[in-house]
Nucleic acid binder design. Structure first.
Lengths: 193, 193, 193, 193
DNA sequence: TATGAATGAGAGTTCATTCAT
DNA sequence: GATGAATGAACTCTCATTCAT
């Protein structure tokens, strides 16, 4: 009976190493040797878990964002305050986390672009639950008279776009991210009833 | 009497080929063979003008945007209409040209990021003249009563950021670029006196 | 009480899988993974029975033809007709079976050649019983006046060579195998008394 | 003006090295390193002349047999004796040369088989001129009363098949080639008028 | 006995770069 | 100045084989 290893865990170990290597060396310099070295495995061992280097990258960008916005449905993000303040706090938290994972976001975008993956669609998948959640929150805020009566879908759409804009600026024009944050915050304030 | 060859001209020929190859093949696929082929020179000849391939790329992305916004100082963009309409038309033209050069913009950003070049600074250099020009135009518009009296620097800053945002979305989230354009257009309208 | 496993049987299982894989994928594509997969064992288990992959192949091509011509000594191939007709039927059956196992024969030859094994000697071993059997049959035919009085050994030798020729053409010049069959059949007819 | 190298000559140098390596190491062991080493070039230099290793092999088997039977149309093989004797001498010469190039023939067959090239068709191409030449010779012999009046095409076809058979036995059953030669020689004698 | 885990050796291939003419 | 020739370094990927359980 040989040692049993959790494949999923190993895959995670590897792709997280991949993301770290991206962060340190940039996409063009990233190769299997570095990734294997980073996670203390031999080059060939990686092939036990991924069929190719592109497979690693695909997995990395997919798994790396899977449960991105799940946290906001947890109880601690519910009912502690009114809908508008909750909206503010959630958006603020998203941007803070974007700050924290700046390198990962940048690499995520670069890798997806380089692998010719569909960013639009991927982002859509990752944010669909968040959109739903925000919609409900906003409608609740409107019912409770905290948020202006405007087209909810349009409002959510704009928020999402501005969050993406923040991430893009973070990744490519660091200096201006702060201004985008202000823009988003003032936009939120403008929908207060 | 040996043939005299204009070094600068050759460098231009080469880096423009490099940009064209970027546009067609993307950064990861771009290599010296393709660039040399594109400009009808042999691979080795390129080394007479650039010390390495990274040198070509650095030069390309730097010089590639040099006279980007010069056109708006030409007479045909002056005096044909009032300051506000001119502002609208210039911004519209910038976005249209961004549409046209979408691939080049995308690769430009990717290459700069991959080469660890300072996008912030580069963009600042490229847009400093445009900013100046827009400032004057806006101040003129304010004097003539066509544009609201607001902080000019802030207004110009926001416009530039939104233009950059448009380019970023164009490059990475194609589907949403249209909404960013609307956002920018409605923002411009909101400063009309 | 540990499970007892018949080593010989396992070896047989493995080499028969190897032969099947040869037949399907050809020698160059055959590897241990495929063989192990084919017999439902893990790659490493094979090493319990063979010391290397070449060992498997050696064994396979040697043992793979062991009881090739045993069938002709069975009662159903005896006494049902006269010696000459029996000779005709046996040769026809051999060629038919060669047709059926064309791929296996081809790979068998290729593998032996690639492994630097002595085809001459191997074939000699495999056919020695058949030769003996044919000799007896021919001599019986000569006694009964059905077959011409010629040098039996020479006759048998020629038949064997022509059978081998048929196999070789089958393996390498498919289109001409039919003509070789005709050649062999007409040769047999020519020794009829 | 850099040194100019005859590409065709280099290709020849390389594929001849390839054939030599086949002869020494066998197909399975042959690789680009060995071929490059054999002809004193670096592994990468080979790629200046061939696009892949399979390309080398294809070229080798094609070019290796291109002018195989051209010699028999030269004057020294003409008019020195009567048609029947010439036929005997040509066939004898072909078999002698087959003896001489035994290794090459073996590798030729193995490589073609492994590369999934059409042996039937290739051989047809290589022998079409020889067939024509033999047809004319035989018809001349028939006119001059030296050769029996039989179906020329059939006769030529049988000779070609027997030559191929000789090559196959040479390659795979060395010990029996001699008997095939005798078979062919006696067959030729049997068509003497 | 059986097998998952791991790996070293080596394959084909690409490409920036140097050298000699 | 220009360029064919040549190559070393590095990459992805395969596979037989060993190790530890």
């Amino acid at each position: 009976m040989p040692k049993k290893i959790d494949h999923e865990e190993r895959k995670n170990l590897i792709f997280r190493s991949a993301l770290r290597v991206f962060g340190e060396y940039g996409y063009k310099e990233t190769n299997l040797s570095l990734i294997a070295q980073e996670c203390g495995l031999s080059r060939t061992t990686v092939y036990q878990y991924f069929s190719s280097i592109d497979d690693v990258l695909h997995y990395a960008v997919k798994a790396g964002t899977d449960s991105l916005f799940e946290r906001y449905t947890s109880p601690e993000w519910q009912g502690t305050c009114g809908p508008f303040e909750l909206l503010q706090r959630i958006i603020s938290d998203i941007l803070d986390r974007a700050d924290e994972y700046k390198t990962e976001i940048t690499n995520f975008i670069l890798v997806m672009k380089t692998l010719d993956m569909d960013l639009d669609e991927t982002i859509h998948h990752r944010t669909v639950k968040l959109k739903l959640f925000l919609s409900r929150l906003i409608r609740k805020g409107q019912t409770e008279g905290e948020i202006k009566q405007t087209d909810t879908a349009d409002l959510v759409g704009k928020i999402i776009i501005l969050i993406q804009t923040y991430c893009l600026h973070l990744a490519f024009f660091e200096n201006q991210a702060k201004q985008v944050r202000e823009l988003l915050e003032s936009y939120i304030l403008s929908v207060k009833a």
